[in-house]
Amino acid sequence: MSLDTRKFEVLRISILSLCNFACVYCAPKEKDNLSSSNAYKQFLSPSLLDQNLKQLIPHIQIKEVHLTGGEPTLHQNLIQLIEIVKQHSIDEIAITSNGNFESGLVTKMKEAGLTRMNFSLDSMSQSGFQKLSDRNKPVSQILEQISEAKSIGLEVKINSTILRGFNESEILDLLEWSGKRSIPIRFLEFMKMGPLHKEHPMYFYSAEEIRNQISKKYKFLKHPTASDSTAEYYITDEGYIFGLIANHTEPFCEGCNRLRMDSKGRIYGCLSDETSFEIPNSYEDVQSTLHQAMLTKKKKFTGSELSMKFIGG
């Protein structure tokens, strides 16, 4: 697909850069009390979100808004942000969370207009979970939040980033747990971004290795996959659905329809490009800015030293 025919259709918004975990692939050197640093005090305000959506909607048909972070459930105005997106007649509103939030929040988000939750779950074991997240939180609590989201009717997916030496031995456990609950799981290749940018080869575990490991226990076939999907989906004979997001070995950049916004309200056209743009006020200038953002898109994922939590993945 050429840049001339490609359109922005999905808006991913990093509503804050703060997170209550310090996962090895995102923020391995960060410990407790992250809020003490000014670098982590940037929250997207409801008024700025509303203003930016008003500026963007006349130019692009947004079919989905996806709220990310950092950890978006830490945003004190999260429910209001979801309500604002809903007010702009956007039908699909998703959020990606690590699942470490207060009981009952899932229901509040759904009532505000949320339609889907993606949970980051990289390990089923308590020791593996602690090693990856650098936090002593009960993994059982995250599993309960996933089950609750499923039970109240939200569309639910699980994202598992696989790192060599950390959790490649848990792929089958993750697949079985999610499959038995009819929850699709996506296994992600570790992306060359953020603090471990230079050490990427040391921890990289490919989609082909993941497929090979699954094939030792399960028979599976390709499953229908949307043309703009970041994942290639499969289904096992047992009906377990899993996807592979292989930015490095099986790139999908040429079909990318995503526009990203950070917690300062600036937009990015490509995950592999740190160039950002302020959304201008005039109609003509917005159109020009979106064109410039589209031009930053790469034909292949190249990575970035920018941490995922600042741009929302």
Rank of each mutant, 00 (worst) to 15 (best):
E189I: 10
V156L: 12
P201H: 12
L172W: 00
K157I: 09
L221R: 14
L221C: 11
L244F: 09
S206N: 09
L196F: 12
D228T: 14
V156C: 12
S229K: 04
G243F: 01
F190H: 14
E199C: 01
E232W: 00
L172F: 00
L244G: 06
D237A: 15
F166Y: 15
E168R: 10
E170C: 04
R181W: 03
S229G: 13
Q213N: 13
I158W: 00
F187K: 00
S169G: 03
L175Y: 02
G194V: 05
W177D: 02
I162A: 12
S178C: 13
L188Q: 10
M193R: 05
R186C: 04
A207N: 13
K222H: 12
T225H: 10
F166E: 09
R181E: 06
G179H: 01
Y233L: 07
R186G: 07
K216T: 14
K198L: 14
P184R: 08
K216L: 12
Y203L: 13
H223V: 00
K222Y: 13
P224Y: 02
P201A: 07
E170H: 08
M202Q: 15
E232A: 12
S229Y: 08
W177G: 03
E189V: 07
K192Y: 04
S178T: 09
Y233E: 02
I210H: 08
F204H: 14
L196G: 07
N212S: 15
Y240F: 13
I235K: 05
T230K: 12
W177K: 03
S206M: 11
S215D: 10
G194D: 06
Y240D: 05
E238N: 13
Y234K: 00
N167Q: 05
F220E: 07
E170S: 06
I210G: 06
E208H: 11
N212F: 04
F242C: 08
A246T: 07
I158F: 03
I171A: 03
I185T: 08
A231W: 02
N159V: 09
E208L: 13
G179M: 02
K217G: 02
T225Q: 08
F166K: 09
S178K: 01
N159T: 11
